[in-house]
Design a protein around this nucleic acid. Structure first.
Length: 426
DNA sequence: TCTGGGGTCCTAGGACCC
DNA sequence: TCTGGGGTCCTAGGACCC
């Protein structure tokens, strides 16, 4: 009998302060300094360097509220550049994939890897090798947690974040209770604000307590998701690795406005633009939408001008990804819910009931549809070559006073030719 | 003055049917 | 006038994730 153990081992690889790390790649001057990256519209803080965390800047905090600390401590501030982050993310994922193709890309900065085929007693070293390879090849620092289930690997990752080595394995730990006891209930994956409140009311404050509570009680007083979480803490797999990228079921494009919008015409332009964006997205994935929802609202934080929020859903006669039809439908939906006299802060478009565009002609398709489809294709190609919005529909407007605020962009984009650095001879 | 965006899944409740 | 039970399907809203 072999003494080599091959138990189930799931690794969670998580990029440290991902957006900040991306900005630092191309800007060595900010490597040891406090740095934050802002959400769209420069609204909230969504990524912080360790130095910024140490200053007490909180995740998700509105930028204007943290401004005092930021100025006082000379914190470097960046608007987010998603096309750069997306590109770096793909490089990280490609690197990880070399270690094991059994991998789930969980988010822009996280992936689960099945490392069960490595021996138990070497797993920590494997983790360290993955970490140093990613750092060397992409420049991005990561933390790695390894354990029997996804939920436990999240716990391990949580611990790894605070360690110098950046790697924590719970594989082979006989009694996990003392470790789980130090993990607060709200830090458990799948436990959000509401569940934290509920667990506190029932005397459950840490992961060990959740692990050891009766399953029937959880199911009865909460739901199946909560009971899955508890089982996973016990080392029983309930949440599998999703290796294949499943087709999405919905597509949202929504934005807060740079300035409040009051005019119907401007709202129309914004909605039309979001529609173009969304329809291009689903076309690029060969999907068609069954229905569309549009929504508009004023700011929920400032009520002195009155709060108004509304949405309208319309089913297409036939599922479509045609920009013209989508814009037309959206604008008629907008007309039915628009109210004069409000200062709108945000609007959005949601395409739902997505399914494969098998390209088959249906009963109602005609030669005209064929022409429209080829027009759509050529719009997509032109936009791809010359940049988004090189061509768009007249209703999308040109003024764009509602455009996002981005006052701190690093203007670095590894996916954009025009952002290549220029080297001058002296 | 200034508070992100894009997803998934579950559940309760209503409509409808037999 | 009284008044059952069980099933399906859909949707809106809520909770969670990053």
């Amino acid at each position: 009998m072999s003494s080599i153990q091959h138990t189930k081992k799931i690794a969670l690889v998580d990029c440290n302060s991902f957006y900040v790390s991306c900005e630092r790649l191309f800007n060595p001057k900010i490597r040891k300094k406090p740095v934050v990256v802002l959400s769209n519209n420069d609204g909230c803080i969504v990524s912080r360097s360790n130095e910024a965390k140490a200053l007490g800047i909180k995740m998700g905090e509105p930028y204007f509220k943290a401004k005092d600390i930021i100025i006082k401590n000379n914190v470097q501030v960046f608007s987010s550049g998603y096309s750069l982050y997306g590109d770096i993310s793909r490089r990280v994922m490609r690197t990880l994939k070399r270690f094991n193709s059994d991998m789930e890309v969980y988010s822009i900065d996280e992936a689960f890897l099945d490392l069960s085929n490595f021996p138990d007693d070497e797993i920590e070293d494997v983790g360290k090798e993955i970490r140093s390879t990613v750092l060397q090849w992409t420049g991005i620092p990561t933390s790695i947690g390894i354990a029997k289930t996804k939920t436990l690997s999240k716990v391990a990752n949580h611990i790894a974040k605070k360690k110098e080595s950046g790697v924590t394995s719970l594989v082979g730990v006989k009694n996990i209770d003392p470790i789980l006891e130090k993990v607060e209930i709200n830090d458990v994956w799948g436990v959000g604000r509401q569940l934290t409140k509920f667990y506190h009311q029932n005397g459950i404050y840490n992961a060990k307590q959740l692990k050891n509570i009766s399953n029937t009680w959880i199911k009865k007083s909460s739901n199946v998701l909560s009971s899955r979480t508890a089982m996973e803490l016990r080392g029983i797999t309930c949440i599998g690795l999703e290796k294949s990228v499943s087709k999405r079921k919905s597509c949202v494009v929504s934005r807060s406005f740079g300035q409040r919008v009051e005019k119907f015409q401007e709202l129309k332009e914004a909605i039309a633009n979001y529609c173009l964006n969304a329809s291009e997205k689903i076309r690029s994935e060969s999907l068609i939408a069954k229905s569309i929802t549009i929504f508009i609202r004023t700011s929920p934080f400032q009520n002195k001008f009155g709060y108004y929020s509304n949405s309208k859903t319309i089913d297409f006669p036939i599922a479509t990804n045609n920009s013209i039809e989508i814009v037309k439908t959206a604008l008629s939906a907008l007309e039915s819910i628009f109210k004069n006299g409000y200062r709108y802060q945000k609007a959005g478009v949601l395409l739902t009931g997505l399914s494969n565009d098998d390209g088959k002609k249906n009963l109602f398709s005609s030669e005209k549809d064929e022409k429209i489809n080829s027009l759509m294709r050529s719009i997509d190609n032109t936009n791809y070559k010359y940049g988004r919005s090189a061509i768009s529909l007249a209703s999308a407007g040109v003024q764009r006073r509602w455009n996002m605020k981005r006052e701190h962009s690093s203007r670095i984009d590894t996916a954009d030719f025009y952002c290549l650095p220029t080297i001058r001879a002296i």
